[in-house]
Amino acid sequence: MFSPVEKEVIALGAEAEIIKAEWWGRDTVIKRRIVKGYRHPKLDSEIRKERLRREVRLMRDARKAGVPIPVIYDVIPEEATLIFQFFPGERVMDCIESGIELDLELMGRFIGKLHGADITHGDLTTSNILYDPEKKSFCFIDFSLGDKTTSIEDKGVDLHLMREALIAVHENPIALYERILKGYREEFSDAEETISKVKDIESRGRYL
């Protein structure tokens, strides 16, 4: 009863496994950073603990800045495990694909708030933002590549990743991107500088 009942593996990334579970009658998600056999055991356990700490810190800061994130239920450093609220929604990517109306300007405002608080996400794509069509609410997930930084370049990389993600899968990417930027500009004072940085980053032709 005290430990979560694991139900199914939702995702298996390079770094962590994401498991859907039930805990005290609630739907929860367990994110567990996997032990890497190639790494020195001491280094491995330090890295996993440190990444967990960093992720929790960024999630907390994002929440303070007014960006919706899942509620954290528990942090277990020894097991490099994070337990948080299961968000009943779909990836923004899938919502756009299936024609669900989304307030992309609002999503852009959240990205603006994130950058205004000097938080970069590090992997800001339409797969890492969830949307609940019933409550019309967003949820930002997976901050494991994020950072606390004032760097316009790093914030530009976030926008660039978003733009690339839209272009890769959606039909009308530029219009979608512009709607996001509209909200972004309203919320973040360095928006213009960051947006123009995206062109620099693109010309270097990397960051997929």
Partner: peptide, 18 residues
Amino acid sequence: QETTFAMLTEVTERALAH
């Protein structure tokens, strides 16, 4: 060796997953 090689291996794994 342990530190730098682990870094490279980690980035390689990310690329594989991606």
